[in-house]
Design a protein around this nucleic acid. Structure first.
Length: 208
DNA sequence: TGCCAGGCCCTCTTTAGGGCCTT
């Protein structure tokens, strides 16, 4: 699927950093059609163990909030249907990709969706910023959203990632004239070294 | 028992090391 006309913006909250031993506790996924949010899937999940104190402090999610919630492997079936084969966008996408594949595998599912990373794209399209963590980008690019100020909750982080995704499209259009870059172009851009980005964007501008 | 990721990115680099980013 080489078009970004329909795309999924994804974010997981988890019990830690290791997909092999940690579990997902919250997911949010927003379907964008022609860059407009159409539908959001979100769900808290019970990881089957008490939350580390650090995670409760980071996310605000408590054991009490997860009581009675479905296990991740139950939620993955619904998430898989919601995402379909659409490309997936996430901030530091390798993290969410590894957790998605691990939880899908526990549910007996697989996925081969393309992944696009707003952090890697931002480093190339918006160079010179002091930090590329999501909260810092939201602040430095003035992307704050009403009612979505709590970072490290899945829906809020997805909403901020949507805003960043749209801002990155503005930058691509400014540099190249492309209004709807393909997955292939965005993947190539992500894999271009930071130092070679200007050259690649110039190539795209000439071709468009 | 003790320890615990993975991958990108920069630079005082490439026979490497450390910081960043995700939770």
């Amino acid at each position: 699927m080489d078009t970004t006309r329909e795309i999924i913006i994804l974010d997981f909250e988890t019990t830690g950093l290791q997909p092999g031993s940690d579990r997902t506790i919250e997911v949010a996924a927003t379907l964008l059609v022609d860059r407009r949010p159409v539908e959001t899937f979100s769900q808290l999940m019970h990881p089957g163990r008490p939350l580390p104190g650090f995670i409760t402090a980071l996310t605000g999610i408590t054991d009490h909030m997860l009581r009675g919630k479905p296990r991740p492997e139950q939620v993955m079936h619904e998430l898989r249907r919601f995402m379909g084969a659409r490309p997936i966008v996430a901030h530091n996408a390798s993290f969410d990709r590894r957790f998605l594949l691990a939880e899908l595998a526990r549910a007996g599912l697989v996925a081969d969706n393309e992944f696009l990373c707003t952090m890697r794209l931002a480093r190339r399209l918006l160079p010179g910023l002091p930090s590329y963590r999501l909260s810092a980008l939201v602040q430095s690019l003035d992307l704050q959203l009403p009612g979505a100020s709590h970072f490290h909750r899945a829906v809020a982080d997805v909403n901020h990632t949507v805003a960043l995704w749209l801002r990155l499209h503005e930058a691509i259009e400014q540099h190249t004239g492309l209004t709807s870059p393909s997955v292939k172009v965005l993947t190539r851009l992500m894999r271009t070294s930071v130092g070679q980005t200007a050259r690649y964007l110039a190539t795209l501008a000439l071709a468009s």
